[in-house]
Amino acid sequence: MANYDPSFAREVFQNVDFGEEIKMCMQCGVCAASCPLSTEMDYPPRQVFTLIRAGKREEVLNCNSIMLCTSCYTCKVRCPRKIPVVDVMHGLAHYALKQGFVPRRQPAVFGREFWAQVYKLGRIDEKDLPRRYFFSEGLVAGIKGTLDFMDVGLRMLLHKRMKLLPERKIKGIQSLRKMLDKAERMGKGGAGA
């Protein structure tokens, strides 16, 4: 039996971007019904908010829901209480990473690799990024992931969407890095932070 503990809700209200908006949730479930990824999530957005109210810190900050949000904005548009659900989800994701919660193989990993590559090359290497992502969970998972995507890769080669040789750095990579550095200093830290 769970105890209701308002202290985590207070923590969220104070520390998470848009966290205080959760107060207005009336649990209608429109966000859950609208979310294209809710079937993949541990908890749909509505339930994430319930868990916060009930004080379930571990469940919330560990769940994949906050990481899976693709920013399609359907929930934010539809919410009858005008809660910016997308922003709350991102806010929670940042907060979870900041608090040292390690995301499982999830968009967070993908985001981190994506960011690293953009920083390094100024572009994405279509071979290197999936490789790093698939192999982040070990050799077996890496091979399986690669095989699963083989036909996609072959078709990309056929349509000249992917080169066999490694990608080179863009021109003026230094200027881009300066911009990215500044953006990172201004923001509260993205998925790669």
């Binding site: 769970a2 105890n3 509505r46």
Partner: peptide, 15 residues
């Protein structure tokens, strides 16, 4: 108060 929380899907205790 012990209650059945329908949205959480479990029994809760408010102390």
């Amino acid at each position: 108060v012990e209650a059945e929380d329908e949205l959480l899907g479990e029994k809760v205790r408010l102390e």
